[in-house]
């Protein structure tokens, strides 16, 4: 039994999402083979070979794969899956993985399971549906199981410690259907809310817009995005696009720090899937404490500057 895992990378660095996907493969069991498809990406293959638990790295280094165009990479993956008899093809549920894998699945005439959050058995998986408001247990009936993996649901394997062999793949698929024109890497000082690893949000307890500067200082130190509750937006403290919740952004960072937010269900609807939730609120009965992993009952005007100082 073997799993082919599509490595996520930018031709020079192996992205951490790959490590979570390897963890999912480990949960399935069997050999784990990492495919690094790109252009000038030997360095990535080197990093991939060191990932704990990886048995082999396949390196497809060709201009056709430089921008990971699905039209070119999908036939490569489908061909490898078939010829080498992989039973599983996995990719991180990132925009790259989501763009590629369904195309692979269709070429193999099999279904695809999106965004799995747990491995129940060799053919049965759990995945969120209805934006995470229900969890489906799904059994795959196909011989080759093509799956994207939600990173936050699997603790990453170690980036080092492995010593896999690297094997070159020479097959070149250039469909000639699409070309890379350009890209614009979001280069704001602060990450976007929906992409941030850490978010610090303020609520009505912040008192006014100027006080959000307290949160921004913490955010700068943590590389975090700054969010807000609807009450803070409605009171005019901050603009609408910072709102997290049912009618705002839906986020699931690794760390969510709620400051002066009571924790109404409509706010929770937007952040309850965060990995770790911290609440800072002066009311010890605030509902936010019922979902917070770490609660600090304190006046935010004392606690937040202290937090900033201690980071």
């Amino acid at each position: 039994m073997a799993t082919l895992i599509i490595a996520e990378h930018d031709n020079s660095i192996l992205k951490p999402a790959t490590l979570n996907t390897v963890a999912a493969a480990a949960a399935i069991g069997g050999d784990a083979v990492l495919l690094v498809a790109g252009e000038g990406c030997q360095a990535v293959a080197g990093q991939a070979a060191q990932v704990a638990g990886v048995n082999k790295v396949l390196l497809a280094d060709n201009a056709a794969y430089g921008h990971q165009l699905a039209e070119n990479v999908a036939p490569l993956v489908a061909e490898l899956a078939k010829s080498a008899g992989f039973e599983y093809v996995l990719a991180p549920a990132t925009t790259t993985g989501k763009n590629l894998l369904p195309r692979v699945a269709a070429l193999l005439d099999v279904g695809q399971l999106s965004d799995i959050v747990s491995v129940e058995s060799a053919d049965t998986f759990k995945r969120p549906i209805y934006a995470g408001n229900a969890i489906a247990t799904v059994k795959s009936l196909d011989a080759i199981k093509v799956i994207t993996v939600r990173g936050t649901a699997f603790d990453p394997v170690a980036a080092e410690g492995g010593s896999a062999s690297i094997e070159a793949v020479t097959a070149v698929h250039d469909a000639g259907l699409s070309r890379f024109v350009g890209e614009e890497v979001a280069k704001s000082d602060r990450p976007e809310l929906t992409a941030a690893r850490v978010i610090i949000s303020g609520g009505r307890g912040m008192g006014n817009g100027e006080n959000f500067a307290l949160l921004e200082k913490v955010a700068d130190k943590l590389g975090a995005a700054v969010g807000a509750s609807r009450a803070a937006v409605d009171a005019g403290f901050v603009p609408n696009d910072m709102q997290v919740g049912q009618t705002g952004k839906i986020v699931a960072p690794e760390l969510y720090i709620a400051v002066g937010i009571s924790g109404a269900i409509q706010h929770l609807a937007g952040m309850k899937d965060s990995k770790v939730i911290v609440a800072i609120n002066k009311d010890e009965e605030a509902p936010i404490f019922q979902v917070a992993d770490y609660g600090l009952v304190a006046d935010l005007f004392d606690a937040v500057p202290e937090l900033e100082a201690s980071l």
Partner: peptide, 17 residues
Amino acid sequence: FDKLSSVFLSNTNHEED
């Protein structure tokens, strides 16, 4: 239950702007 978690179950919403 409190009011806000109750309102949640009415599925109410209005365009904010």
